[in-house]
């Protein structure tokens, strides 16, 4: 358990450091950004480690039933809300059997264009590829279901009213 927590602490601090860099997107760095970064980081370490402990005992939402006896941490843990000149940031870490599987930012930045842009990058990137229709051996094919044409009619009317 101790070893696992140490791993969690390291993982969490690494991510919060990353978040710190994301939060300060100006790569050249200026005085304000430099000074804003270090202070939230140690704070983040402590709080994350604590919440990881508590969480392992009480939360573990996904795997609590299956792995009560496991030494490896599973579950989702919210880091503290930290702030810098760009706004408030919070990291949410999801662990599966001690492995960090997901990083989210429940609170991220201000409405300023810079932080919105950064946050766009932090969202999952879609994988793109061309696909061809094939006749696979499947139990069922899920095709588009459809909603009421009345909705369409109503919306079209509204678009016309709005002059769009």
């Amino acid at each position: 358990m101790k070893a696992t927590n140490a791993v969690v602490v390291t993982g969490a601090s690494a991510v919060i450091l990353t978040a710190g860099f994301i939060a300060a997107p100006n790569p050249g760095g200026n005085d304000t950004d430099e000074s804003a970064m270090p202070s939230p980081t140690p704070e983040g370490n402590l709080t994350s480690a604590t919440s990881a402990d508590d969480g392992a005992a009480s939360e573990s939402p996904a795997d609590s039933g299956a792995d009560e006896t496991s030494d490896l941490v599973s579950g989702t843990f919210d880091g503290p809300v930290v702030n810098n000149i760009r706004g408030d940031y919070q990291v949410r870490l999801t662990f599966d059997q001690g492995v960090l599987v997901e990083v989210e930012f429940p609170v991220a930045g201000t409405e300023a264009p810079e932080s919105r842009f950064i946050n766009e990058d932090a969202l999952p990137q879609l994988a793109e590829r061309f696909v061809e229709a094939q006749d696979w051996d499947v139990d069922y094919v899920s095709g588009a279901s459809f909603t009421s044409p009345a909705m369409v009619e109503s919306a079209q009317g509204a678009f016309e009213d709005a002059g769009v």
Partner: peptide, 10 residues
């Protein structure tokens, strides 16, 4: 068509 037919993924 739904229910059966060609699919692009499974």
């Amino acid at each position: 068509s739904t229910g059966k037919g060609a699919s692009v993924d499974s």
